[in-house]
Amino acid sequence: GKMTGIVKWFNADKGFGFITPDDGSKDVFVHFSAIQNDGYKSLDEGQKVSFTIESGAKGPAAGNVTSL
C-alpha cells in the first residue's frame, strides 16, 4: 500500500536519492523515473512524499512517488 515519508536527499544530476519512511523502516532508494509529475522529475530534501515499495533489481525501491 501507500506509505509516506520525507526525502532524505536527492541528487538531481544523477537522478536518484533516498526517502526516509514515516514508519521508521529502512531508507528507500528512489529513482527519478518513479516520480509522478509532468514536469521536471526531481525531489527536494525534506519534502514530504507518498510512495509504494516496488522490488527492483537492486532491492526495494520507491514507486508512484507523489509530493504531498
Rank of each mutant, 00 (worst) to 15 (best):
D38G: 11
S50P: 00
S55V: 15
K58V: 09
T52R: 04
L68D: 09
D23C: 06
F32W: 14
G1I: 09
K2A: 14
F32D: 03
F18A: 03
I35M: 05
G24W: 07
G39Y: 09
D38T: 12
K58Q: 13
G5F: 01
G15K: 05
D13M: 14
G5Y: 00
V7D: 00
D22C: 08
T66L: 10
G1V: 08
A34K: 09
G63Q: 13
Q47F: 05
N11C: 07
W9F: 10
K8Q: 05
F29N: 02
Q47C: 04
G5I: 01
P60Y: 11
T4C: 06
A57E: 12
I35C: 04
G1M: 10
S50N: 07
D44C: 09
A61S: 10
F29V: 03
D27L: 08
K26L: 11
S67I: 15
G15T: 02
V65W: 00
Y40G: 10
G46Q: 05
D38Y: 10
F51H: 01
S42T: 15
F10G: 01
V7Y: 01
W9C: 05
S67Q: 13
A57D: 13
E45P: 15
M3S: 09
K14E: 05
F29H: 02
S25G: 13
L43T: 02
S55T: 14
G63Y: 11
K58G: 13
I35A: 03
A57Y: 12
S25E: 08
A61P: 02
K48W: 10
E54W: 10
G56P: 04
G15N: 03
Q47A: 12
F10D: 00
D27A: 07
E45L: 13
V65G: 01
G56A: 11
K48Y: 12
G1C: 07
D27T: 06
T20Q: 12
I6L: 09
N64T: 08
D23M: 06
H31F: 11
A61Y: 15
D27C: 05
V28E: 01
A61E: 15
S50T: 11
A34M: 07
W9D: 02
N64D: 11
I53C: 04
G46H: 06
Y40A: 12
Q36L: 13
L68P: 06
D22V: 08
S33E: 04
N37T: 15
I19D: 00
W9M: 05
G24T: 05
I53Y: 11
K48R: 15
V65F: 01
K48G: 07
G15E: 02
S25A: 11
K48Q: 10
V65N: 01
V28I: 13
G46W: 05
F51L: 03
V65I: 05
V28G: 00
S33M: 09
G24H: 09
G63C: 06
S25V: 07
D38S: 11
I6Y: 13
K2P: 15
G39L: 12
F18S: 03
T66W: 07
L43V: 05
G1W: 06
N37Y: 13
P60H: 09
I53K: 07
G63V: 14
K8I: 05
K2G: 11
F29D: 01
L43F: 06
G17V: 02
G1F: 09
E54T: 09
H31A: 04
G46N: 06
N11G: 04
G63N: 12
F51I: 02
F18D: 01
D13A: 15
D23W: 06
A61N: 11
A34T: 07
T52S: 09
S25T: 13
T4M: 10
N37L: 13
G56R: 10
S50M: 12
V65T: 02
G59T: 04
S55W: 12
Q36T: 13
A12H: 15
P21T: 06
A34D: 07
T4W: 08
S33R: 11
N64R: 04
A62T: 02
G56Y: 13
N37P: 08
G59V: 04
T4F: 12
E54A: 09
Q47Y: 05
K48N: 06
V7S: 01
M3N: 09
D27G: 04
K2E: 13
N64V: 07
D38Q: 11
D44N: 15
G5D: 00
F29E: 02
H31T: 04
F18G: 02
Q47D: 14
S25H: 07
V49I: 05
V49T: 02
V7T: 04
G56N: 13
T52Y: 10
L43G: 01
G39Q: 10
G63H: 12
D27H: 05
K26G: 12
T66S: 11
D27S: 07
S42F: 14
S67G: 11
T52Q: 07
L43S: 01
K8V: 06
A61K: 14
D23L: 07
G15A: 03
V30H: 00
Q47H: 11
S50V: 09
V65Q: 01
A12V: 14
T20P: 00
S33C: 05
T20Y: 08
N37K: 14
G63P: 02
N64K: 06
Q47S: 11
Q36F: 09
D38H: 12
K14R: 13
D23T: 08
T52F: 10
E45R: 15
A57P: 14
M3D: 04
K41F: 09
N11T: 05
K2Y: 15
K48T: 09
G56H: 13
K14C: 05
N11K: 11
T20M: 14
S42K: 15
S33V: 04
S67L: 15
D44Q: 15
I35S: 03
I53P: 04
V30Q: 00
S50Y: 09
V65K: 01
K14N: 05
G24F: 08
D22S: 10
V65Y: 00
D38I: 08
I53V: 11
T20V: 15
G39V: 10
G1R: 04
W9G: 02
Q36K: 12
K2T: 15
D23I: 06
L43K: 01
N37G: 15
V28P: 01
P21L: 08
K8L: 07
H31S: 05
G17K: 00
H31G: 04
F32K: 12
V28N: 02
E45H: 14
E45S: 14
S50R: 04
L68T: 10
T20N: 06
T4K: 08
S67T: 14
G39R: 09
F16E: 03
D13V: 14
S55M: 15
A62F: 01
F51C: 02
G56L: 07
E45N: 14
F51S: 00
H31V: 03
G46R: 06
S33K: 11
K14I: 10
G63L: 12
N37S: 14
P60G: 06
F32Q: 09
W9Q: 03
Y40R: 12
V65A: 02
K41H: 10
A34N: 08
F29Q: 02
F51V: 01
P21F: 04
M3R: 08
E45Q: 14
G59S: 08
S67M: 15
T4S: 10
K48S: 10
G59L: 06
S50F: 09
P21K: 03
K2H: 13
E54S: 09
Q36V: 14
S25I: 07
F51W: 02
G24D: 06
S25K: 09
